[in-house]
Design a binder for these strands. Structure first.
Lengths: 196, 196, 196, 196
DNA sequence: AATGAATGAGTTTTCATTCAT
DNA sequence: AATGAATGAAAACTCATTCAT
C-alpha cells in the first residue's frame, strides 16, 4: 500500500497520541515517527491541535456515516444489534482512533472541543433514538434510557482497550458476544444476536 | 473542614490531573491551585510523578480494601451486586480519583506503572472470582467470563464521566440501576437488585 | 578565521569551563558567550555534559596521538624530553583545554568519567613506559617510577596555570627549561636537554 | 574525639567541596552530611562562600605559620627540604583541605579571592626566598627561580591527588622521596635529603 | 539550638512554532 | 518539498537564603 506523506504524518500522530496521549507527544516525536524534520511536518499539518482535531473528526465522521446507514432499516432490536456491532468492530479494529477520540477530548481548546463534542453527541443521539423507539414499542425494558445508553456505550468502547486479534475471540465472535450483552442490558430477548 | 497544606496540594493535583490530565497539568498549575509558589510545592511532595502515584495508590487501596470486605459473604449474585454498588458509588462520588486511575496509567514510568497495574489487577481479580463462581454454580450464564468482566467494569466505571448529584438519579437509584444492569449482563435473575 | 556556530559554541564552552568550572558555568553563560539563545544552543550540542566530554576527548585524543608518534623513536632520554616538550607546549598554548581536562573530571557522570579516565591513563602509560625503559637501561635513577611519573606530570601540567607568551620565557625557552628539569628529576645527565 | 556541631559542619563541607567542588555541592548536601536541616546550618556558618573562605584561610594559615617556623633556621638546602617535607606531608595527610585551596580559588568572589590569593602568595614567597638565597649562595643551579618555584610547588601539591597511606610509600618515605626530587630539581647535591 | 515553611531566582532541557533558504 | 536555524515560553526541579516559631 502506497502512503502519501500526509498519511504517514496522520498515522504517526494517531499511534503516538493513542500510546502517549496528546500532551505526552511532542512535535519531535511526531517528526521522528513520520521520518521528517519537525519543520517539514508543518507542510502537512496545521498546528498540533488541528492534527488532533482532524483525527477525531475523521474517526467520528466515519462512525456517524456508518451509523446513519444502519439506522435506516429494521426494528429497534435489529438496529441496536447493528449499532453495537458497528461500534465494537470499529473499536476493535481501529483502537487507536477510538481511544484518541475517547481520551483526548479534554486536550482540545474550547472551540475545537465544541465541534468534536457536537459530532459525538450526534452519534450518541442515534443510540438514544434506537433505545427510545425500542422502549416505546415495548421491545426494550429499561429503567432509564439515558443511563442505559451511557452504560452500553462505555461497555462497547472498552474493547478498544483490550481486544486483540490474537486473543480468545475473533472479531465476529466479539461482535456477537457484545450484541448479546447489549440485548440483555436493554431487556430484550436475544433473537437478534446472530447479526452480521 | 481544616485542611493541611499537604492535603491542599493533594487535592489540587487530583482536580487538575482529572480535568487536564497528568501531562496537561504543569507544576505552576499545581502551585497556583494550591496557593503556593512552585518551589514551595516541593516541600509537600516528591516529584510530580510520585504525587500521581500516591493518588492512584490511595484510590486503589481504598477500593481493594472495600472489595475484600465485600467478597467475604454471600452467594455470587449478592457479591456481584455488592461489588457493582461499591464500584459505582465510588466512581460517582470520587470521580476525580477514579478517572485519574483509569486514564493516567500510561503516564507512569515503567516501575510505577507495574505497581499500580498490580493493584488494579488484584482488584479486577475479585470481580473475576465472583463471576467464575457464579458461572460454576450455574447462577450466571455468560459466553466468556473475561469478556463480561471487562464489559461490566467499563460500564460501571463510566459513571465517573457523567453522573452528578444534581441529575436524574440520586446515588442510591444509580447504584440500584447498575446492579440491575449487571445482573442482566451476567444472565442472572434480578432478585438481588434491591441491594444496599 | 571563519568559525562555524558549532565551533563558537565549543570555544565559548572551553573558555567558560576553564575560567569558572563546569558547575560554575550555566547554560545561559554559554548561550551569551556564543551569541545564541539558550534554546538555540541545543541545535549545536547535546547535553552540557556531552559538550564537556567532547572537549576532553578531543584534547586527550590530540595529546595521545602526538605521544604515540614521539614514543616510536629514540632512547629513553630523548623520548622523555620529547614527551615533556609536547606536554609543556600543549599546556602552554592550549591552557584552557588542558585545565578543563585536569580539573573537571570529577564533574563527569560515571560512564563519561570512565571513558575520559581511560584515555588519560593510556596517555600516562606512555610516560610510564619511557620511565621504565630508562630505568631498565640504567639511563635514569629514580626511587619509584610511579612517583616520578606523577611528579613529572603534575610539574609539567602546571604551566597551563601560569605561562603566558608575554612573560619571562618564550615557548621554546619554556620547553627547554622543563626538559632540563625533567632530566634532573629522573637522574639523567642533561645531554638531551637541547631538544626540538 | 568529641566534635562540636560547628566542626561537623566544617568537616562535612571540606569533604564535599573536595569531592564535588564548591559549585557542585549544594546547601542540602552539606546539611545532610552534617546531620542538620539546611536552616540549622546557618546557625554555624555565614554564607556558603564564607564557609569556603574559612576553610581556605585556616588551611593556608596553618601552612604559612609552619613555613614561618621552618624558614628561620638552616642553610637554603636544609630549608628547602624542610619546606618540601612540610608541603608534601600536609598535602598527603590533609588532601581535602589542600585540594579545596588549590582548586576552588576561582569560585570565590573578587574580594574573597584577593584575600586568599594574598595568603597563598605569602606562602609561595617563602619558597621564592629560599630558592633565591640558594641561588645567591651558589647552592642551587637553576635556569629561572620563578619557573622552578612553580614547578616545585605543582609537583609537590600533586600528592594530594593520589597518595594514600595504603600505598607503596608510607608518609616518611614519601616525604624523603620528594625532598630528593626537589634537590635534584634545584641542582643541589642530595646530602640534605634525609630530613625529618 | 533547631527547624518547618517559604520563596525568588536559578538550573538544564524541551516545547511548538516560524522562517529564510 | 524539505530543512537547518532560531527562539520565547515553558517544562520540572533545585538553588541559597530567610524567618517565625
Amino acid at each position: 500500500m502506497v502512503q502519501s506523506t500526509e498519511e504517514r504524518v496522520r498515522s504517526a500522530a494517531l499511534t503516538l497520541f493513542a500510546e502517549r496521549g496528546y500532551h505526552g507527544t511532542g512535535i519531535r516525536h511526531l517528526a521522528d515517527a513520520a521520518g521528517l524534520s519537525s519543520a517539514s511536518l508543518y507542510h502537512y499539518m496545521g498546528t498540533k491541535e488541528e492534527l488532533l482535531v482532524a483525527i477525531m473528526r475523521s474517526s467520528l465522521d466515519g462512525l456517524l456515516e456508518a451509523a446513519d446507514e444502519l439506522s435506516a432499516t429494521g426494528d429497534p432490536g435489529e438496529r441496536l444489534v447493528a449499532l453495537v456491532q458497528l461500534h465494537v468492530r470499529t473499536h476493535a479494529t481501529a483502537p487507536e482512533q477510538t481511544r484518541v477520540v475517547d481520551d483526548e477530548v479534554n486536550a482540545l481548546s474550547a472551540e475545537a472541543r465544541a465541534e468534536v463534542v457536537a459530532l459525538r453527541d450526534r452519534y450518541e443521539g442515534r443510540w438514544q433514538e434506537v433505545l427510545e423507539e425500542g422502549v416505546a414499542r415495548g421491545d426494550f425494558q429499561v429503567g432509564s434510557v439515558a443511563v442505559v445508553r451511557r452504560a452500553l456505550l462505555e461497555m462497547c468502547s472498552g474493547v478498544a482497550r483490550w481486544w486483540t486479534p490474537a486473543g480468545e475471540l475473533d472479531l465476529d465472535a466479539l461482535a456477537a458476544e457484545y450484541a448479546a450483552l447489549a440485548l440483555r442490558l436493554v431487556g430484550a430477548s436475544e433473537r437478534h444476536a446472530d447479526g452480521r
